[in-house]
């Protein structure tokens, strides 16, 4: 009974995705496309199942690089947001710059960073952290100023010092925004890492993909895409779970 319910639940949520996968397989089989042009989902799955471990190394590397860049970017972005919170002048200087950089396609800076820092895995980390830096700066900055109603007056009447106000009121107020930025940016971090690896040919999923595509091994290229998608979804899922957990505790 429960199995039937959960299958119908699964269908309710994934009918559209399933439709596309099945349609793709039927189209490939019916049109008799060569697997170099476009393999069907079955062929891709078979290729992956044949040697799943060969994907594990690059996927792990990309995942780690994305996480490292994400954390570094958030540390710098949140740090600068706090600095800019503490100084009205610094805030005035930085706010428009932050706005400008969130309204331009930062991904196009990847080739510039690659040229500046050299083709290296550390450059990938730097690129990911640059991509994550601006959302962290903007969202945490807004969070530091979104205090619960009345709490500012409360702290003044109770005679809290500036430090106490910062530690007990301002910082905790920014946590929900920090988590929101984290969830929004986590998939972008994986995307940025894969694109950077692809462009520079450094190790990881992006490189694996480039190699497979270059050898016309389309099955392998698509399987790599699939793994990249799963990695990105996993990052998003982790960030979402973390956000929910924190928000339960925080609001």
């Amino acid at each position: 009974m429960t199995a039937v319910v959960s299958i119908s639940n699964l269908l309710r949520r994934y009918w559209a995705v399933a439709l596309i996968v099945v349609g793709w397989q039927i189209w490939v089989s019916a049109a008799g496309l060569s697997s170099i042009v476009l393999p069907g989902p079955l062929a891709v799955a078979t290729d992956f199942a044949g040697d799943p471990l060969s994907y594990a190394g690059p996927a792990g590397l990309t995942f780690l690089v994305a996480i490292a860049g994400l954390l570094l970017g958030f540390l710098l972005g949140a740090g600068l947001a706090i600095l800019s919170w503490s100084s009205r002048i610094l805030n005035g200087l930085l706010t428009p710059l932050g706005l400008i950089f969130t309204s331009i396609p930062v991904v196009t800076l990847i080739p510039i960073i690659a040229r500046l820092l050299g083709y290296d895995v550390r450059t990938v980390v730097a690129i990911v952290s640059l991509i994550c830096f601006f959302p962290a700066f903007v969202y945490v900055g807004a969070g530091l100023r979104a205090l619960p109603p009345g709490s500012d007056d409360l702290f003044r009447v109770f005679g809290g010092s500036q430090l106490q106000r910062f530690v007990r009121l301002v910082l905790p107020s920014a946590v929900p925004n920090l988590m929101l930025a984290f969830r929004l940016t986590a998939p972008e971090a994986v995307l940025a890492a894969v694109v950077a690896e692809f462009l520079m040919g450094t190790d990881g999923l992006g490189y694996l993909f480039r190699k497979a595509a270059g050898e016309f091994d389309t099955e392998r290229a698509l399987a790599t895409s699939l793994i990249a998608t799963i990695t990105s979804v996993a990052c998003f899922g982790l960030a979402l779970a973390a956000e929910r957990r924190v928000l339960r505790r925080w609001t």
Binding site: P187, V190, V195, F198, L222, S225, A228
Partner: peptide
């Protein structure tokens, strides 16, 4: 949306 555009492009 979760499919990295890099993976979508060749398709």
């Amino acid at each position: 949306h979760a499919i990295p555009s890099i993976a979508l492009a060749p398709l």
